[in-house]
Nucleic acid binder design. Structure first.
Length: 646
RNA sequence: GCCUCGGUAGCUCAGCCGGUCAGAGCGAGUGACUUGUAAUCACUAGGUCGCGUGUUCGAAUCACGCCCGGGGCUCCA
């Protein structure tokens, strides 16, 4: 559930538009006319009271705006007026019309607003446009006769739906957010709490970048993020224009890496004692509990209408696991009780301009673990364990403490009672940490941390996170039976040990891009490399031995049997970041040994070559991949049989 | 959602003050070469110039709308 785990760097909640405020619409049909003429014939029962001289009218060379005010407009008529008047003015200017006819036209909508709202909006539009144009308004709620002559040029007929973005609907939670006051400090391993402005960042440049990103929102980017080029060039992941933006396609190699990371995080969660579950990806907007929850903090959702239900796609696994938790019978003996799901996918309809490669998506894969704890003491203890586990998970994935910055955020009250604990967290990482404190609790949690990766373009994004949630047990009516037989509310931890899997891939690629820029040789950890060993037979007569070695190694080994020169094959292997490249020619045939190029020891232009036996190479691979999940080669073993995906 | 830049062959891109402007390199296919650590040579095929509408005698080129991507703003449980 937790956005930070996956997608954002900031802990503040998105202003939650309530689901009922979700869409605000006004339907417009704009006709550029030679003339428009109407006459009100007789009133309907909702008719607006108007003087006789307003019951008919005619405009020459006018833009005629047929308007249906919709039910949803009732939430914010002013915003609708502002938006719609701008739209009408834009078109009128474009077609060089000096006159505008506002014509209420109910048939454009199937969900009309109340007549009061409609009249209010119509009058609002009239007032808003009056300054710039000659405006006439046909009365609302009358049966009217009209004549219209459409000019018939390309822009003469346009229809518009005015949509007011969710963010403009001010909900209770948004109002609360604007009152949030954050205090920013740096906490050092020695336990000193220093205001950020007084902290000497010498030697902690990445932390400084992160802090600036967080507080000052410093951004300066003028190029495509390196990982976007890499994800395509390495044939891992790509954009999918046939879908919605931010929904990506994964090629076999990308799918392999993602699957390995998913399985690895699941394994590690299992080590912590988590039970894997699976929950639906869509939920009923009208479900009473979810409705309250959505009111509290929706990201922007994807909505789906199905038969009689109005559904939304989940943005985390919280829904499913909390609903499950609500129905479970849990004894205190079961606590701490941990459940995890790798959400494939979590959906958030992030704004178009925010989407970038693997960093920020609309559909992403998030390990989402929830832990029920008896009380705050137990929750804090569990928090410490999951903090340590997150460090270890990232380390195995290829990111160590130098690669990310730690943020710890809490309420003032929490800190007063747990100061030593917070300091111990900082001591664990042995480097200064960004601290954000709130005077009051505006969010559902009292304590959280995130690990924030700072990329090649100095952008920060959150990976691992854990939060202590003191609110949702109540909201979902989750309880456990204590030793005395009484039902009690647990404290709930939200944890994503790695953050979103896509984002982890992004971080790995960005890290390697930074290494490459610094003159080092980039590569993925051996356990994640789609091909672990490539064998290059020098001539056709060496192929049999190549396949024999491939089989004996029993890892992800492929054979470059293409009709290319050895030089070409070596170069291609380098471009694919192959950890081990074995060339087999007459010499190897004779000696039985292997000539292996070891990427991890190579420098640019200086491949590190070593002679070793098949067994030695196999042992080496076993050591480097011990304890990690394994999957078979994701592509045909013979390079000659492989398609190109990009 | 707004602003801005871009979309030309599978990929990277040139052409773009309207008129042999439909091109290059890589990739792909075919043939030759049987190859020892960052690109072997030759030939061939491939494109509604993102989509639509308009302006014009004539549009890849100009205008408008839309779609997709990059960046910025906003936003970022």
């Amino acid at each position: 559930m937790n956005e930070d785990a996956t997608q954002s760097s900031k802990p503040l909640p998105t202003p939650p538009p309530s689901p009922t405020h979700r869409v605000v619409l006004l339907q417009l049909l704009l006709i550029h006319s030679d003339y428009i003429e109407f006459e009100a014939k007789r009133p309907t029962k909702v008719a607006e009271d108007v003087p006789d001289d307003a019951k008919s009218g005619r405009l020459e060379e006018a833009l005629c705006a047929f308007i249906a005010v919709e039910k949803y407009d009732e939430d914010d008529p002013q915003a609708v007026v502002a938006q719609a008047s701008k739209e009408i003015a834009d078109v009128a200017t474009q077609v060089k019309a000096e006159r505008v006819m506002l014509y209420p036209y109910a048939h454009l909508s199937s969900a009309l607003s109340s007549p009061d709202t409609a009249v209010k909006v119509m009058k609002g539009l009239e007032a808003a446009l009056a300054g710039e144009f000659q405006v006439m308004r046909a009365p609302f709620g009358w049966y009217k006769a009209f004549q219209l002559s459409c000019k018939g040029h390309p822009l003469s007929e346009l229809s518009r739906s005015i949509r007011i973005g969710e963010g403009e609907v001010v909900s209770e939670a948004l109002k609360a957010e604007s009152k949030v006051v954050s205090h920013w400090k740096i906490l050092t391993p020695e336990g000193k709490m220093v205001p950020v402005e007084d902290f000497d960042f010498t030697g902690h440049e990445k932390l400084q970048k992160f802090v600036r990103y967080e507080i000052e929102k410093a951004r300066a980017v003028d190029r495509i993020p390196p990982h976007v080029e890499l994800m395509r060039r390495l044939e891992l992941v790509d954009y999918e224009p046939g879908s919605d933006p931010g929904n990506l396609r994964f090629y076999p190699k990308g799918r392999l890496i993602k699957a390995l990371l998913e399985n690895y995080v699941l394994d590690r969660a299992g080590d912590l004692g988590a039970m894997e579950v699976e929950t639906p990806i869509m939920y009923d907007m009208e479900h009473p509990t979810l409705k309250k929850y959505l009111d509290r903090f929706p990201a922007r959702q994807y909505a789906i209408d199905a038969e009689k239900k109005h559904l939304f796609l989940r943005f985390a696994a919280c829904f499913g696991q909390f609903l499950m938790g609500h129905d479970m019978t849990v004894s205190y003996k079961s606590l701490p009780l941990r459940m995890i799901e790798i959400t494939r996918y979590s959906f958030r309809r992030e704004q178009r301009g925010e989407l970038v490669g693997l960093r920020r998506l609309r559909a992403f894969t998030m390990p989402d673990m929830h832990t029920l704890c008896t009380d705050m003491k137990s929750a804090v203890e569990e928090f410490g364990k999951q903090y340590a586990a997150s460090i270890s998970v990232l380390d195995d994935a290829g990111l160590d403490l130098k690669d990310y910055e730690v943020a710890i955020r809490f309420t003032r009250d929490f800190y007063q009672e747990n100061e030593d604990f917070v300091k111990s967290l900082v001591n664990t990482v042995k480097k200064p940490v960004l601290i954000e404190t709130w005077d009051d609790r505006f969010f559902y949690f009292v304590l959280k941390f995130e690990f924030n990766f700072v990329d090649a373009l100095d952008k920060a994004s959150a990976l691992s996170t854990v939060q202590i949630d003191v609110e949702n047990a109540d909201r979902y009516d989750i309880n456990y039976i204590d030793a005395d037989g009484a039902a009690r509310r647990p404290i709930i931890l939200h944890c994503s040990p790695s953050g979103a899997i896509e984002r982890l891939m992004y971080a790995l690629l960005e890290k390697e891009a930074m290494k490459a820029a610094a003159g080092e040789v980039p590569m993925l950890p051996v356990w994640l490399s789609p091909t672990q060993v490539r064998i290059i037979p020098v001539a056709e007569r060496h192929q049999a031995r190549a396949f024999q070695v491939a089989e004996a190694l029993n890892f992800r080994v492929d054979v470059d049997d293409r009709e290319e020169t050895v030089g070409k094959k070596i170069r291609d292997a380098g471009r694919e970041w192959l950890p081990y490249v074995v060339v087999i020619g007459d010499d190897e045939l004779a000696s039985g040994e292997l000539t292996v190029t070891i990427r991890a020891k190579s420098q640019p232009k200086e491949p590190a070559k070593a002679g070793m036996t098949v067994d030695e190479l196999r042992l080496r691979l076993q050591e480097e991949t011990a304890g990690k999940p394994w999957r078979r080669l994701p592509l045909p073993q013979k390079l000659s049989e492989r398609p190109k995906f990009v």
